[in-house]
Computed example of a mutant assay.
Amino acid sequence: MSDKSPVQYWYNTSTGQVEEGTERSSWTNRLGPYPTREAAERALDTAKQRNDSWEEEEADWRGHA
């Protein structure tokens, strides 16, 4: 069994770059962690899809669909 943790990836909203491992920017500019570089690259799209879904659910809950 390995003591090594899986590599995690973050998306830096300030630079638009993917960061990996333990060296990363301030939490104020980061989305993640993500399990793969590709998932981190899609961070903004993923966040938009989730926000859109939550807004639809809230509108349905409030009866404003």
Rank of each mutant, 00 (worst) to 15 (best):
M1C: 12
M1Y: 13
S2T: 15
S2F: 10
S2Y: 08
K4Q: 14
V7E: 15
Q8L: 14
Q8W: 07
Y9M: 02
W10D: 00
W10E: 00
W10V: 01
Y11T: 01
Y11V: 02
N12I: 04
N12V: 08
N12F: 06
T13Q: 04
S14L: 15
G16P: 01
V18P: 00
E19N: 03
E20N: 08
G21A: 00
T22L: 12
T22A: 11
E23L: 07
R24Y: 03
R24L: 03
S26L: 13
S26H: 14
N29Y: 15
R30I: 12
R30L: 15
L31A: 09
P33V: 05
Y34F: 15
Y34K: 05
P35T: 13
T36C: 04
E38C: 01
A39I: 03
A40M: 03
A40S: 02
A40R: 00
E41G: 04
R42L: 09
R42A: 13
R42V: 01
A43G: 07
L44T: 12
L44E: 15
L44W: 06
D45S: 11
D45K: 12
A47R: 15
K48D: 07
K48G: 03
K48R: 14
K48V: 04
R50H: 12
R50D: 10
N51F: 08
S53F: 09
W54L: 15
E55R: 13
E56T: 07
E56M: 05
E57Q: 12
E57D: 10
E57M: 09
E58G: 02
A59D: 08
D60I: 11
D60L: 11
W61G: 06
R62A: 03
G63Q: 02
G63P: 01
G63L: 04
H64T: 02
H64F: 06
H64Q: 11
H64C: 02
H64S: 06
A65Q: 03
